[in-house]
C-alpha cells in the first residue's frame, strides 16, 4: 500500500502497512533519524513531530491516518546551512545539551508552546514538557533557555518547525 504525505515540505511516497507508526517510517524509510523512538507509548516525547501543525507523538500515529498530511521534523527547524531557530540557539547558548536524545522532541514541544504563548512563564514551560523525558539535564537549563529567548528580536523568525 502506498501512502503519500509531505515531509519537511517534500512530497514523499512510502509503502508501509497503514498501521505502521509514523516514527518508524520517518526513521527507517525516510532516514530522518533526528526523530527518536525511545518508548513507543507516548510517555517519553522523543518522537514528537508536527503533523498538520500539531506537535504529536509520532510513535502513536498510524501511517494511514496521515495520508495527505504535512509532517515536520527536527531536521526542518533550521535550514541546513542557515542559523539555528531561536529555540535551538537558546539551547546551544545555555549549554543545555547533554546526550541529546531528547532534544528533537523537546524542541517540538517547546516550538508548539511558543506558537501558542509568546512569553511563557516557568509553569507553562514545565507544562509543555510534561511529555518529554530528559534523563541527563534535570531540565533547568532547558527551562531557562526558553524563558530567556528574546521574542522581541524578530517575531517573524520565532517559530521553528510549527507547520
Amino acid at each position: 500500500m502506498t501512502t503519500e504525505l509531505t515531509v519537511n515540505g517534500n512530497l514523499r511516497r512510502v509503502h508501509n502497512p497503514p498501521m505502521t507508526p509514523l516514527a518508524r517510517v520517518l526513521r527507517e524509510d525516510l532516514h530522518l533519524t533526528g526523530t527518536k523512538l525511545a518508548c513507543g507509548e507516548g510517555f517519553c516525547g522523543s518522537c514528537t513531530v508536527f503533523v498538520d501543525g500539531d506537535a504529536k507523538a509520532s510513535c502513536l500515529i498510524a501511517l494511514g491516518t496521515v495520508a495527505g498530511s504535512s509532517v515536520r521534523t527536527v531536521e526542518s527547524m533550521a535550514s541546513p546551512r542557515g542559523p539555528l531557530a531561536p529555540v535551538q540557539q537558546a539551547m546551544k547558548d545555555m549549554d543545555a545539551v547533554q546526550c541529546g536524545m531528547c532534544f528533537p522532541g523537546v524542541l517540538a514541544s517547546l516550538t508548539a508552546l511558543l506558537d501558542e504563548v509568546s512569553h511563557p512563564d516557568r509553569q507553562q514551560v514545565e507544562g509543555a514538557l510534561v511529555g518529554n523525558i530528559c534523563r541527563c539535564t534535570g531540565y533547568e537549563r532547558i527551562v531557562q533557555a526558553v524563558l530567556g529567548i528574546d521574542r522581541t528580536a524578530n517575531p517573524a523568525d520565532q517559530t521553528g518547525a510549527g507547520a
Partner: peptide
C-alpha cells in the same frame, strides 16, 4: 490529562 502531545491526539 496525560501530556500535551497526547492531548493533541
Amino acid at each position: 490529562s496525560a501530556n500535551p502531545a497526547i492531548r493533541r491526539a
